[in-house]
Simulated assay, not measured.
Amino acid sequence: MKFKNKKTIFMLSLSVCLLLTSALWLSLRPVEVIAVHKDGSHSYVLVKKFPCTEKGKLKWWLKNKDALKDKYKIPSPASDGSFVVVFWDFGDGYKETDGYDNLCFNDMKPPMNCIEKNSLLMVRNSENTGSYFVLDSGTYRMNNKGDIVKNKSD
């Protein structure tokens, strides 16, 4: 592939550098936990700046699950050990219900107790199934070795 002039090479190099810098910045920015809402063994974590990739989301959970347990007391397992933790994009913040598709929290007084439904990661655990993770592209399970593998049926 030949380039006709130095200006084209410079612009291409600059574009690649900007793209790599943006990718690095996105991968290094810290996740902000805005709030945690609980309903029995279900925990709803409202976040900003969550990792963009599915691999990044899973790595973030594995790295931060102990800190979440210490700071927010989640997950909150039922007596049989099962739990659900859902990470939601906080987006534009709390809002009034639209009466249809918002997620509203009973532990807050209306009207500003809802968010738009944009789940980022669901972590589930039960005695029968073990730990598994639900993401946009499908379901992943943690095997006996601690490796996370995508379900073949997805």
Rank of each mutant, 00 (worst) to 15 (best):
S82G: 02
M108Q: 12
G93Y: 05
V36N: 03
E54W: 08
C52V: 12
N106E: 15
M108R: 15
K73F: 03
P30F: 02
M108S: 06
D154E: 13
P77G: 02
L26K: 12
C17Y: 06
M112N: 14
T129V: 10
I148N: 05
N151L: 13
T8K: 11
D70R: 13
N118G: 05
M11K: 11
K117I: 13
L135H: 07
D107M: 06
L103R: 11
K6Q: 11
P110D: 00
D39Y: 04
P75M: 11
N5H: 06
D92F: 04
C17F: 15
A78L: 04
Y44V: 03
F3P: 01
F133V: 06
N144Q: 13
K63L: 00
R141C: 10
L28A: 10
G56M: 01
Y94F: 15
L24Y: 12
G130W: 12
L12P: 03
V45D: 03
F10Q: 07
K49M: 10
L46Y: 06
L18C: 15
V31F: 05
E32L: 09
E116Y: 05
L12C: 10
P110L: 00
I34A: 11
F50Y: 14
R141E: 08
H42E: 13
Y100P: 04
D66K: 14
L103H: 09
K49G: 07
K71T: 15
N5T: 07
N128A: 12
L120P: 00
I74N: 01
A78S: 14
S82C: 02
S153C: 00
Y140T: 03
K6A: 12
N144L: 10
K95D: 08
W88M: 07
I115C: 03
E32C: 00
P30I: 04
F105L: 06
E127R: 10
